[in-house]
Amino acid sequence: MDDPRTDEALMLAYRDGDAAAFETLYGRWRGPMYRYLAHQAAGQADELFQDVWMRVVRAREHYEVTARFATWLFRIAHNRLMDHYRAQGRNRVDLYDDPEDADTLAAPAQDTPPAMLERREAARHILAALATLPEPQREAFLLAEESGMSLEEIAAATGVGRETAKSRLRYALGRLRQALADLR
């Protein structure tokens, strides 16, 4: 895992037949991708995870560096997640299409010092709070946390404008802070 090449260079190398490059790339992103899917589709993470990586493998032939690799990768994951929601006949996809989106939702503004909370308890609490978030907001938070994406990258990966991504993330952060504050 000490390969100094960038993710994009590794993906290009894999496209050109370097299987070891894929292994390095996979090693870098397997954890974040798995957690992203585990939080978004509990109980089906394994299947989705495999599908996403298989799509990456199949898409290698026409891979070009048009964005950060993480954006490209999580765009594929996002599409797979939407397929999953559609296949389940759930209304979750509509949440993503809502033009009002999170902009109309009031973000809890209270900042609390989570450092005062016991870490374990905080961890349990934050996961519970994360599970209660609407999918789009949770996704924005997970993309920011797991892949280190900027607002622009989150917007690109999820197919929305920067402002929508921003409001989703703000909403998520507000709700999670509130959850931690409740522990006090």
């Binding site: 954890g31 993470a45 995870f49 989570p114 870490r119 905080a122 961890a123 946390e145």
Partner: peptide, 18 residues
């Protein structure tokens, strides 16, 4: 865009691996 405290709490809580 980030809350370091929140990030730390999340990372401690979420360590699932495939």
């Amino acid at each position: 865009e980030r809350d370091p405290m929140l990030s730390r709490a999340y990372r401690e809580a979420s360590q699932a691996e495939p």
